[in-house]
Every structure is written in structure tokens, then in C-alpha cells.
Design a protein around this nucleic acid. Sequence first.
DNA 1: TCCTTTTAGATAGCATGCTATATATACTTG
DNA 2: CAAGTATATATAGCATGCTATCTAAAAGGA
Lengths: 146, 146
Amino acid sequence: MSFDRNSSAGYVVNHMARLFAEALTRRIQPLGLGTGQFPILLQLWSEEGLTQKQLVERLDLEQATVANTLNRMERDGLIVRKPHPVDGRSQCIHLTRKARALEKPATEAAMAVNRIALKTLSASDEKRFFETMAQVIGALQSDLKT
Amino acid sequence: MSFDRNSSAGYVVNHMARLFAEALTRRIQPLGLGTGQFPILLQLWSEEGLTQKQLVERLDLEQATVANTLNRMERDGLIVRKPHPVDGRSQCIHLTRKARALEKPATEAAMAVNRIALKTLSASDEKRFFETMAQVIGALQSDLKT
DNA sequence: TCCTTTTAGATAGCATGCTATATATACTTG
DNA sequence: CAAGTATATATAGCATGCTATCTAAAAGGA
């Protein structure tokens, strides 16, 4: 009996993640946004003027990933980089008016995707699902720390 | 109160998927494999000589994704493409000896990752987790069909 | 002060996955 | 059989994410 993809947590999780991404893409592409920009925007909507370093600390992404995504966001007119007042190595990331205007429609789109994805779950199933994911994430993180 | 990443199913699922991928990468990179090659190898280990079309039907991936991954696998000496006996458009994908030799260590690596990720879950939690993921996947798939 | 080390960010290069499109072969229909 | 359609694969081009490496500025120590 061979390894069955659909009994492999890693495979199923990857598949589910791709479906989430596709569903979100559908809804935010018309706003001119991509899925990778979303976490950064969420952070900046609640806390503007962060440095790249601070963004990296708050999001579970590598520095290079954030730098590249910021480049695309700058190109697309969503952010501007302003020199840091005291540290010449750093820059503060600020949102443009355009990016601020997207907060409501974009978060609504993300909430719609979450609602649709979880709609067959009872409140307790949903709670359990989040708890289980947190456990799995914790287990993988401690493995990776090895 | 703003949108909280960690209460967003999409975000958490994406994060979990990246951690699974990283844990698997750690273990199969020494074998010369990447995560994207894994589903294709699994399929071919159990059913060799499939066409690209058949692979696409069995894996939830786009045709172009499979074509590109097969190109890398050919480059890396894992597969060979042989002309289809009757259909001149198709090719049959065959494993090399090298790829066949990787079946055991690679599936063991994947099983190790799954075991580690789920180790804090009881049997019933684990069962429930898979059931919930299947429901979420189904809900997203039916949304995307719209 | 000068030198070393650390830190912030940029960049190169790659894999994975996508959409859109091109190409070549097969099929179908008049 | 010719003409048009459908199918199998290839390719272009992009976003997201990674590791590894480079550069420039800051911090610390002799």
C-alpha cells in the first residue's frame, strides 16, 4: 500500500492554502492587489510608518520576501519609502492615499473568503479548527527550530 | 477593531502550509528533491508511464505548472519523456532508476513531517482535523466553480 | 580614532504556482 | 479529403516565497 496524498496532512494543507489564495485573488485582483501584499497592507493599515525590519518581525516572512513585495507595492503606488529620521540604514514605509482607500473593500473581500470557506462549520468546529491549526503550527515551528 | 491576521483562516492556513513546506524541504533537499516534485513522484511511483494530461487530472495543479515541474525533473534526471505509442501530441512520463530509488527515503521523510506536525493531536482530533479540512476545501471549490 | 562586528536593506537566483497564449497533432464534419 | 475544431503540450511572463550574498550605515572596543 503506497503513500496516499489525501491522507497526508502536508498535501491537504497545501491544497487548501492554494484554494484560499485563489478565492482571495478573485476578489482582490479587481482592486489591483495580490495576495502577498495583503499581510503587509493589514499591518500598515493598523500601524503606519514601520520600517522593513519591523514588518519582518510582525509577519512570518523573510526579509528578502518583504523587500521584494514592497518593491512591487511601491511600483504599484501603494506605498512610499521615507528616510528614517535617525537611522540611515532604515526607511519608514508609508501608505499612499490609494492604499488607504483600499482598506475597507480589501478587508471585506478577505472576510468574505473566510466566511465562505468556513460556512459549513459549526461555531465549535470552527473554534476547534483554529485551535488545531495553532497546535500544528507550534509543532512545526519547534521542529524547525531544531 | 481591525482585521486580525491570526483570526483569519486564510492567513493561518497559508502560514501552516509554508511551515509544512519548509519542514519537508529540510528533509528532501538532501535527496535532491523539491516540494513541488513530490506529488508528481508519488503519482508516478504508483502508476508509471502516465501522460502529462493524466497527471494533471490526478493532481490539483494546472497543466502549465505540471509541464514546468516535469521540465525541472527531466533536467535533474528524475524522469524521461517517451513518445506516446498512438497519440503524437502526448508523451509518457517514465521514472529513472534514480527516481525509483528515492521512493522509500522520500516517503519516509514526508511521513516524518506529518507525524511531527500532528504529534500533539489525539487520534480523534486528527480525524476531525482532516474532516474539517475536507469541508473547507469543498466549500472553497464550490465557491470557485461560480 | 580606527578597526571590527553587527544590523538594515537590496539584490541575485531559484522553485512553485498561476494565467494567457502558441503550436502541433488529432478529430469531425461537410 | 479539406476545413475547422478540439486536445496535448510548450512557452512567456508574472507573483510569492525562499536562501545566499552584497552594501552601507551603525555600534562597540582597542
